Simulated assay, not measured.
Amino acid sequence: MVKTQAPPQSAVTGASDLDAVLFREGMSRVVGAVHVVTTDGPSGRAGFTATAVTPVTDSPASLLVCVNTASRSAQALLANRVFCVNTLGGDSLALADVFAGRTELQGQERFTVGQWAKLATGAPALAASVVSFDCRISDARVVATHHVIIGEIVGIRLGEQKPALVYQGRLYREL
C-alpha cells in the first residue's frame, strides 16, 4: 500500500499568486517528448523547442502546438502558415538547447546545427528526427499567454527508430 501525504491546504486550493508556480511544478513532473518546431516562408525561417505538442485527430490527421505569444518564432510561424514538428531522438540534446535559446546561436544561425531538408510545405525537417510532421495551419487562437495552433498534417517523414528525447523534472532524459 502506498502512503500519500496530503499537501498543505494552500497547495490544494492555490492562492491566485501561487497557481502559476504550482502549475509549473506539477507540469515539471509530467514526461513530455521534446520537439523542434520549424517554419519557413515569406516571413523567414524560424524554430523553437517545444514539449507542448499533442495529436488532435487522425482524420484529418492534425496536431496541436502551443507557443508563447512573445516568441519571435511564433510570429514567423503564424505569418508563414506552415510548420514542421520534428520529434527529437535521445542523441539530439544539443539541438534542443540550440532551439530553446540556451546557446549563443540566434535566428537563422540555429539551422547550422543538424541537417535539414524540406517536405511538402517547405518548413525545415530535421534529418535526424525520430519523426517529422509537416503541417499547414488550420486554426490558431490566443489563450492567455500562448498561441494554440492546430496544424493539418500534409506529410510525415519517419526517421530511424531510436530512443526519444524527453523532458521531465526540468531535465532532458532518454527514453
Rank of each mutant, 00 (worst) to 15 (best):
G107Q: 15
P124M: 10
G107S: 15
V98W: 01
A125M: 10
V131M: 06
A125T: 08
F133Y: 08
V130N: 10
L105A: 09
L105Q: 12
E109C: 09
T121D: 01
L126S: 07
D97H: 12
Q108I: 06
Q108Y: 04
R102F: 08
E109V: 03
A127E: 12
G90D: 00
F133A: 03
D134M: 05
R102D: 02
A127D: 10
R102K: 09
S92Y: 00
L95Q: 03
G107V: 12
Q108W: 06
D97I: 04
R110Q: 07
V113A: 10
G114M: 02
K118M: 07
D134A: 03
A120P: 11
C135V: 02
V113E: 13
E109Q: 15
T112K: 14
E104F: 15
Q106M: 13
E109P: 05
A100M: 10
Q115N: 12
S132F: 01
A96F: 03
C135N: 01
G122N: 02
T121C: 04
A100N: 07
V130K: 07
V98S: 00
D97K: 11
K118E: 14
L95P: 07
A96T: 05
F99I: 04
L119C: 08
L126T: 03
D97V: 04
L105C: 08
T112G: 10
L95C: 11
V113W: 10
L126V: 03
A123R: 02
F99T: 03
D91P: 00
D91Q: 10
Q106S: 13
R110F: 06
E109L: 10
Q115E: 14
V131I: 12
S92K: 08
A127H: 12
S92D: 14
G122V: 04
G107M: 15
T103M: 12
Q108R: 12
A128W: 01
R102S: 02
V113Y: 08
G101N: 06
A128V: 04
A96S: 13
L126G: 05
D91T: 06
R102M: 08
T112Q: 15
Q115H: 15
D134Q: 03
L105R: 13
E104R: 15
L126E: 04
S132Q: 13
A120Q: 13
T112V: 07
G101K: 11
A128L: 08
E109D: 15
L105F: 12
P124A: 08
T121W: 04
G101E: 06
S129M: 10
G114H: 06
G101T: 05
E104Q: 14
A100C: 06
A127T: 12
S92H: 09
L126P: 02
C135H: 02
L105N: 09
L93Y: 14
D91K: 00
G122M: 02
A128D: 15
T103H: 07
A120F: 04
S92R: 11
K118A: 15
Q106E: 13
D91R: 05
T112E: 14
V113K: 11
G122W: 01
A125P: 02
W116N: 08
Q115Y: 14
S92M: 13
L119K: 05
L95M: 00
A125V: 10
E109M: 11
L93G: 06
A125N: 07
A128M: 08
F133W: 07
G101Y: 00
A123D: 04
G90W: 01
D91Y: 11
Q106T: 15
A117M: 11
G90H: 00
R102A: 05
F111L: 11
V113S: 10
G122E: 03
F133V: 01
G122P: 01
